[in-house]
Simulated assay, not measured.
Amino acid sequence: MVGATMRNTWIPFYALLIGWLIFQYRKQAFGLVLTLVLAVVLSDQMASAVMKPLTLRLRPCHEPALQKLIHPVLECGGTYGFASSHAANTFALAMALWLLIGKRFGWVRWVFLWAAVVSYSRIYVGAHYPLDVLAGAGIGVIMAVLCVNGYQYVQKRFDRVRK
């Protein structure tokens, strides 16, 4: 779980995904990758810059009443944990991929399993409560839907201009 929760663990996966999208989609790849990045960035900011300062909910590893019950395996991280940025980011990526290419490539559904494992790892290492992770996943899904809808709108507008 420690490996799953570390962001650097997944850099090869992200690089492989971007390379595959470029190979598979060539000219469309820029828009697809930009949509994925935008979904992740917006979900991250919604969780970190909006929800955490708004709710001020302590992470389990910072909660004084839980200190004797929790044995964190990593440094605790920031003071506040609602909502999980890891969950928001991974579910934003999974949902955006699904909406963009899931009909063509069924294997994309497995990216949701990856997002779930990364999200669960945040509970396992004592950084989040289950509700933090569920809220983060919800934020990620919503941001992905918004970004993909925006991408499809822009794509339709450009298609009309080209005709």
Rank of each mutant, 00 (worst) to 15 (best):
Y25L: 15
L66P: 03
T35I: 01
E63C: 12
L38P: 08
L36F: 06
A49Y: 05
E75D: 06
W20D: 02
K68V: 06
G77R: 05
P64F: 02
R26E: 15
T55H: 02
L32A: 00
E63R: 07
T79N: 09
L32W: 05
R57D: 04
L69C: 05
F23V: 06
T55Y: 03
F30D: 06
L56C: 09
M51R: 03
L74Y: 10
E63G: 10
Q24T: 13
T79W: 04
G77M: 10
M46H: 05
H62A: 12
A49E: 06
P60G: 12
A47S: 15
W20I: 03
G31T: 01
K27C: 03
P72G: 14
G78Y: 12
T79Q: 05
A29V: 09
R59E: 11
T79V: 07
T55W: 08
Q28Y: 05
E63T: 15
T79G: 03
I70E: 04
V50T: 07
P60I: 12
A65N: 14
K27M: 02
A65T: 12
Y25S: 08
Q67C: 00
L36Y: 10
L21F: 03
L36N: 09
L54S: 10
G77L: 13
M46F: 15
Q45R: 01
V40T: 09
T79D: 01
S48W: 00
V40C: 09
W20C: 06
L74D: 12
L32M: 14
Y25V: 04
Q45A: 02
I22T: 13
R57W: 05
R26P: 02
L34D: 08
I22W: 09
